[in-house]
Design a binder for these strands. Sequence first.
DNA 1: CATATATGTCAACATGACTGACATAAAATC
DNA 2: GATTTTATGTCAGTCATGTTGACATATATG
Lengths: 170, 170
Amino acid sequence: MTDIKSGVNLLFLREEELRQGIELLYFAYRDFTAEPDAILSDYGFGRAHHRVIYFVGRTPGITVSELLATLRITKQSLSRVLSQLVAEGFITQTPGLRDRRQRLLQLAPKGVELERQLTEKQRARIARAYREAGAEAVEGFRKVMLGLIDEGDRRRFPARAMDQRKRGQG
Amino acid sequence: MTDIKSGVNLLFLREEELRQGIELLYFAYRDFTAEPDAILSDYGFGRAHHRVIYFVGRTPGITVSELLATLRITKQSLSRVLSQLVAEGFITQTPGLRDRRQRLLQLAPKGVELERQLTEKQRARIARAYREAGAEAVEGFRKVMLGLIDEGDRRRFPARAMDQRKRGQG
DNA sequence: CATATATGTCAACATGACTGACATAAAATC
DNA sequence: GATTTTATGTCAGTCATGTTGACATATATG
C-alpha cells in the first residue's frame, strides 16, 4: 500500500487537498455573504453598500481614497453607493482638518444601527465556527488566511494579543 | 493589568478577533479571485464562467440542476453563461443515460485548458499559503472554514486522508 | 504661480444577478 | 393510457455593480 502507489497517491492527495481549499473559500464566502445580502435587500442596498458601511464603521474618519484602496474598485463605483448612503443619512462626512479637500466619513446613527445588524450575522457565524473549532484551529485559520492575502494588505492584521490560555507560555 | 480591566479587555479582544475574521475572509476572497478574473477578461468571460468551468471540471457529468444547487443562482443566470460556454466549445453536453432529459456536462479540450490555466493561479496561491503555514495550521484552517459553511454543503468535504506525517499516530 | 492631489461628476457600457411566465420532453405515477 | 412531476430551455424586463474616459473644482505643495 505504501510502495509503488505512494508517490502517485501523494500527488493525488495534494491535488485533492488544494481543490478542497479552493472550494472551502468559495462556499465559505458564498454563505458568509448570504445573510447580510438578504437584510440589505430590504433597504434597497447591495453588497457594495455593505462593504462601504462596514469599513466606514470599522475606521471612522476614513477618507474616500483610503476606501478606494481598501475596496479596489473605481471612484465611480464607490461614488454611486457612497452618495446614496450619504443622501439617505447612513453616513456623514466632514472636511479633513489638515487637508480640507478630504471627506472624512463616519456612520450616522442610522448607519451604526444597520452596520450592527449586518455585522452581527457575520460575527455570529464566525464566533460559532471559532468556538467549534477551538483556539488552536483558529490560529491555523488566521495563518493560512493571511498567507492567501496579498502582502500589502497583511499589515491590516497585527499579531493577535495572546489570549488567556496561552499567556505566560510564550 | 489583569484585575479590573480584564473583563472589558476580553470582550474587546473578542470583538476585535471576530472583526478580523470578517476581514480575513473579505480580503482573502478579493485577492483569491483577482488573478483568474484578469485571465477571464481576455476571453470575454467573467467570474460566473469561471465557476461553471470549475465545477464542471471538478465533477464531469454534472447535470444542470446539480450545478444550480452548487452555485445557488437562478436557471436564467446559469443558462446565459452555460450556453455561451457550450456555443464557444468550452463545454460539451451529452444526454443522461438513465434520464435522457438531463444534460451531462463536461469540459471540452478547450475548457480543460482554460480550467487548468485559471485554477493553476488559485492552486498556487493556496499551496504557498499552506506551505508557509504548516500542516497543523492547515488542519485548523479546514476546521474553521467548514464551520463557516452551511451544514448541507459540508458533506462535500470528506475527512481528509491522513498524510505521511501523521500516519500511524492517530 | 504652477503643479499635484483629493474628490466629484457625467456619459456610456458590460456582467451577472434577479423575477415571472411559458414551453417541451421525458420520467414517474395513478 | 392519462396525468403529474421533473429537467431543462427560453423570453422579456429589471437591477446592482463593476468598468473606462473625460472633465471640473478646491486645496495643498513646491
